[in-house]
Design a protein around this nucleic acid. Sequence first.
DNA 1: ATTGTGATTGGGAGCGCTCCCAGTCACTGG
DNA 2: CCAGTGACTGGGAGCGCTCCCAATCACAAT
Lengths: 339, 339
Amino acid sequence: MKRWTLEDIGKLAGVSRSTVSRVINDQPHTSPAVRQRVEQVIRETGYQPNSAARSLASSQSRILGLVMPSILQSAFADPYYALIIQAISHACNQHDYTPSLFLFQSADEEAKMSQRLVGSGLIDGLIVTADTIDSQFVQMIQPYDIPFVQIGRPLRESAAFISYVDVDNEAGAYLAASHLIQQGYRRIGQLATLHNTAGHDRDAGFRRALLDRGLPIDESLIALSSFSEASGYQAMETLLHQEPDAVFAQSDAIALGAIRAIRDHDLRVPEDIAVVGFDDMPLAASASPPLTTVRQPIARTGKLAVESLLDIVQTSPQPARHIVLPVELVIRASSGAVS
Amino acid sequence: MKRWTLEDIGKLAGVSRSTVSRVINDQPHTSPAVRQRVEQVIRETGYQPNSAARSLASSQSRILGLVMPSILQSAFADPYYALIIQAISHACNQHDYTPSLFLFQSADEEAKMSQRLVGSGLIDGLIVTADTIDSQFVQMIQPYDIPFVQIGRPLRESAAFISYVDVDNEAGAYLAASHLIQQGYRRIGQLATLHNTAGHDRDAGFRRALLDRGLPIDESLIALSSFSEASGYQAMETLLHQEPDAVFAQSDAIALGAIRAIRDHDLRVPEDIAVVGFDDMPLAASASPPLTTVRQPIARTGKLAVESLLDIVQTSPQPARHIVLPVELVIRASSGAVS
DNA sequence: ATTGTGATTGGGAGCGCTCCCAGTCACTGG
DNA sequence: CCAGTGACTGGGAGCGCTCCCAATCACAAT
């Protein structure tokens, strides 16, 4: 299978390299007749432009980097990442961009790779799921003027200069907690992760809901967890000593772990303890009992991250944009509201 | 931050473009003194070779494609994929390659993208997690002589000409079933997925174990599932009617779903029904009860896939290589062998 | 018929690298 | 002392595209 070049195609179609290029790039100034002939030849030959040559000449690679810094290592198994990766991949496909993956296993690897990442022109832009460590990684890439957007609000004050896409974690947690309060629960616990801004914001929303309804905030009812099922299980076991009548888990994985812990201690959900999660993962609907949770639009998040990034890549520098997507409460059996 | 070129660096170090190139690519025929001076300048300037130019001149992109065809869509949330992606990413980092992700949402997208994928020279090689649909995708890319390896044995007879890395699914299932038999269970069910070769091989191992011990194979004790927790739950509910005393689930996710179903029906694991899974996902150890399962070396699978692929990329055509990794049975409480 | 206008078209000049060959240099052996 | 031998080094010639400008052409206006 021969490797065709623009010149070859031009020769076959009886036109010049330039004209073929115009046809391929959908540029104006080509007569319909010529265009058609060229397209015909391209179809017949199965010609594909060489991407290296394109990149070199245009200094655009049409590759986007998807960066997940080292901290996430353990949490990476959370289906959230699978979904966000899927969404980003799909958006890239649609825009004829290629997503490349950069998972760092250690700070060293992170430092070494990020140099190469931004200096070599390999990628046109970066999507960073940063969380806690944005400080390091983002600061490292700042000097290079490479376009990037974060998924999730950055922790640092530099946030104003950084474009990001996030969901309204605070409002979501507020909804979740309010719902529990409305159901009549009073000793409402929280399984919190303060590792990242999502965790902080959810914590803030939780507290605001309690305050709004005049409930006291009992710190002993807040147990720390990380974003995993196993960790949720452990945190819930601790929390059980405080005898909560309901619990807001900062993610569905945590909630599932909590439910397992509750049941292992011969208590029932929601009769003894109601549970609300966050994320609305596919598993939430089919859990036992079906999980009341805050649905966040993961697919939209990924899509918007790609599209914002492309906007920045394709136009000149522009002010940072901050997108915050709404969330909604999905009420199922685990919070006692439906039988 | 200036974009340096080889020529710039050469000028600064008082040598030619070619010499700098030799230093960067670790080629011989450069005096230590010169080499050192050049390296010094590179360090000071933070020079990074332009990858587009490199690719164009060398016709090597140092990018590897990771392809997950459309069928997997739904199953993608299985932590297996997160782990394999992590392993591949890590191996790529180590070898200075960049992994790019190609997830196809539909057969159309698959067809359209795969053209671009193999024709444009964007990638040096492909890792395909193919399963059922290998027939289509692999056949599509065969004509282009692009190097690729599959993860998981191909279904088709063309298997002999395709390089792959797989785990010994048959032996694993055999171990699992034998273990149950040895524990004294007799009505042993299976939650099977026949979607891919892994499923077929596990089924084969399961049957061989029963035959070897002189147990009858009762088809009504085999329920079909796909690779998800929810699906495992449903399949187990069906299987419950047959009153098995033990069940082999073809994946941990399925096993977890099965356990949930069993408990929802007020039965106990392992007292009423013993459960064995497959994969040894992180969750398996911390499940309730901890899950007896077949551990497969996912990280090694990914690493070997990358390394086999690089072997093919970097050397001339060679016979297809078939790697089958061993698995081991990890005995925990869910099979009744330990309290 | 002549000039002007805008839409098309062709080709030169790179993009920054690798590959290859020819040239340079210091030594060696005859 | 000179050809012969290596180890180095420099620079030409692309890789296959995009970008830009000059050239061409058809057609309308003068």
